[in-house]
Design a protein around this nucleic acid. Structure first.
Length: 645
RNA sequence: GCCAGUGUAGCUCAGUUGGCCAGAGCAGCUGAUUUGUAAUCAGCUGGUCGGGGGUUCGAAUCCCUCCACUGGCUCCA
């Protein structure tokens, strides 16, 4: 007998070799029907795996993340079985679960898989699921495993086996499909009910673009069809918030083949947002002791050799223009230009920190397949600044930048983000990262300390830093689930020396400043792309391209409406009037769809009483006020940059 | 850049196995309507079916190629 401890602390005895599923069954059949996996001594196990020692267990059901992962991983195996049935001879790489769903990477040989094949595979999977085959775990010796896959001629699984030791190798079989797999799996295929294969794509083997491209099939499954339908419905809803769709519908930006890929044309409405953001940045930076500068869009080749960017990033820079034997590049970042401004004057420690700010226009030749709406473009406007400071000033400056981020995020109501401390990778010193092992560790420790002292939650990630130093990235997610860096705060211990930047310290010695690169509002492109999705197009009043739309009920009231228009214009409110001879219902509908925050309905009553009727976007009729009262109300809302609740 | 898919009026989309002058709704224009909180009615304009090449008596439809977009992969100073 073994002692099993349950989450509530209760201890009960079971026969040795009982599985979690056996135990669940003894409690109730209903429970057993829901158990997908089990947590055994803090490891996730197959619910069917025999337990031979005393253990602490917890049943994992659909509401548990580990159970979901197990479910989706088992679904990947089910899909593999269907694929193998339909395309005999294909070879499998790996099929992990994702946050929502799963994929399997497959070498399809000469087979091409299309949309129709996915539908057929779904049907096949449903058939296999109905057979309710058990997932059977089998421990196997390494030589036997190698032999199995050698006979099969499967170089991929043999590659995986190369990294595994004898004694830790298991096979899982369900129906006609056997796979090398660590597990765990759900008890049987019958749990899988709602099945959707979402898309096919290519994926390089082991994620290396020099390797062969495998076929990756993505899918998602649920224990019921209803949950699948709900999931698909949510996806559809999310698509409505896609900044590319909203950007077009609301007239924010456009792109044109004749201009070029990834080059954004900001339309008047988008430009209003840009200017409001810049106004905010300027106010904030002025208050924080920044000085503004303006620099050209191009520079000679030499400067990018000095900065060290050219060898690292030549492929993603626009090719140079050669004039009279000199090569000029479009600037991919603003740092070298700012460094030269620092270098133009002599500096004493008393001048530091020197903070140079610019909304800089940069050009990066991103690979065509990487371009993505406003989030990944080739011409970008960066909320850039470089802070030159002495080492002992670093902590305070870095912290001030973080505080600025948080202040901004509060203004925009951005709550869902992750601060990421991006570190170097010691293995890539001298290649991807400047070869200064001690400085790396020192600056990374400095950043870590600032974050910890400021009590800001963050995660640490290796091999994500800039080549010149560690950084804090703010990660956000687009509505369709892609992750992006919204803002960045970077330490640079390398470029100060490359550019021979110096200041004279208290001891009358030349000292190289540390540089902080920061862009709390990221780029206009990515930030506005994010805001479009964040607000679902319903910008707060201070950002709204059109703040107020005047809707006369008929053109008999046009003159009075124009009076109102002028009063609002004098108060610096972005206001338009709908002069069309349409019915009021139509005018309201169109204005609602354009997500204009305030609508002023003007008819006979308003004209006679010298008032206006207010309608708030999405909220309906909001009563009557005098023009002056209304102006006072919304001026306050604009000035405070309030987010409407 | 790589894999797969898509590309029809300003926008959203129809267009059977290749076959008469390529369709609809919205938008736009013109006219009528002068309207009270999410779509008034009528008429009209508008497309070398992404570009180029080919197969065919005949191509939006089949093939090749280039371009762009979409979903991934790789990348993101």
């Amino acid at each position: 007998m073994i002692n099993i401890t349950f989450p509530d602390g209760a201890v009960r005895q079971y026969e040795q070799g009982s599985s979690a599923l056996d135990i669940a069954r003894q409690i109730s059949e209903g429970l057993a029907r829901k158990v997908l996996a089990a947590d055994v001594n803090n490891d996730v196990w197959d619910a069917t795996r025999p337990i031979n020692t005393d253990a602490k267990i917890k049943f994992l059901m659909w509401d548990d993340d580990n159970a979901k992962s197990t479910f989706w991983h088992s679904s990947a195996h089910l899909m593999a079985e269907a694929v193998e049935g339909m395309f005999p001879g294909v070879k499998f790489w790996v099929g992990p679960p994702l946050e929502k769903g799963f994929y399997y990477d497959i070498d399809m040989g000469d087979n091409v898989i299309g949309e129709e094949d996915l539908r057929k595979l779904e049907v096949k999977m449903a058939e296999l699921a109905k057979q309710n085959n058990s997932y059977i775990r089998k421990e196997i010796s390494k030589p036997d495993a190698v032999k199995y896959f050698e006979e099969k001629g499967d170089e991929y699984k043999l590659d995986l086996l190369g990294n595994l030791n004898d004694g830790e190798i298991t096979f899982y079989t369900q129906g006609n499909f056997t796979d090398l797999c660590r597990g765990p799996h759900i008890p049987s295929t019958g749990f899988i009910k709602g099945i959707k294969l979402t898309n096919v794509s290519g994926a390089y083997w082991k994620g290396d673009e020099k390797n062969k491209m495998l076929t990756r099939i993505y899918g998602v499954t649920f224990p019921t069809q209803k949950e699948l339908d709900e999931h698909l419905f949510l996806l559809e809803e999310a698509k409505k918030r896609d900044h590319r769709k909203l950007g077009k519908e609301l007239g924010i930006y456009t792109m044109d083949d004749d201009i070029g890929q990834g080059l954004i044309l900001w339309m008047p409405k988008g430009t209003v947002i840009i200017e409001e953001l810049e106004k905010l940045a300027k106010e904030t930076e002025l208050a924080a002791g920044y000085k503004r500068v303006v620099t050209p869009h191009i520079a000679k080749e030499k400067i990018y050799l000095t900065s060290g960017h050219l060898p690292y990033y030549e492929d993603s820079m626009y090719p140079p223009m050669e004039i009279e034997g000199t090569k000029y590049y479009l600037k991919p970042m603003n740092c070298p230009h700012h460094h030269k401004i620092f270098a133009a004057e002599q500096h004493s420690y008393k001048d530091l920190p020197l903070r140079l700010a610019e909304y800089g226009t940069c050009y990066r030749y991103e690979q065509s397949g990487e371009l993505f709406g406003l989030m990944r473009v080739r011409c970008l406007h960066m909320n850039d600044a470089h802070i030159y400071c002495a080492k002992e000033q670093f902590a305070q400056e870095f912290r001030a930048v973080n505080d600025m981020y948080i202040k901004y995020f509060k203004i925009f109501g951005i709550e869902k983000y992750v601060m990421r401390l991006s570190l170097h990778d010691p293995k890539k010193l001298g290649q991807k990262y400047v070869n200064e092992p001690e400085l790396w560790l020192e600056t990374e420790a400095m950043v870590r300390q600032v974050m910890t002292e400021a009590n800001i939650p963050f995660i640490e990630v290796q091999d994500e830093s800039a080549f010149y130093g560690p950084k804090i990235d703010v990660q956000i997610y687009s509505t369709i689930g892609k992750e992006f860096t919204l803002a960045t705060n970077q330490v640079d211990f390398a470029q100060g020396r490359s550019f021979k930047l110096e200041f004279t310290n208290q001891n009358n010695e030349a000292e190289t400043p540390l540089i902080i690169h920061r862009a709390p509002l990221g780029t206009h492109e990515r930030f506005i792309g994010f805001l479009l999705e964040h607000y679902a197009g319903k910008f707060p009043l201070w950002l709204a391209p059109v703040q107020v739309k005047i809707l006369p009920i008929s053109d008999k009231f046009l003159e009075y409406a124009k009076n109102v228009l002028n009063k609002l214009k004098i108060a610096d409110i972005r206001v338009e009037i709908d002069e069309r001879t349409e019915k009021i219902g139509k005018k309201i509908r169109d204005t609602e769809l354009m997500k204009v925050p305030y609508m002023l309905v003007i008819g006979e009553r308003e004209m006679n009483e010298e008032k206006i009727s207010i309608r708030r976007q999405g909220k309906g009729d909001a009563g009557t006020k005098s023009v002056d009262e209304f102006v006072a109300m919304i001026t306050e809302e604009i000035k405070s940059r309030r987010i409407a609740e």
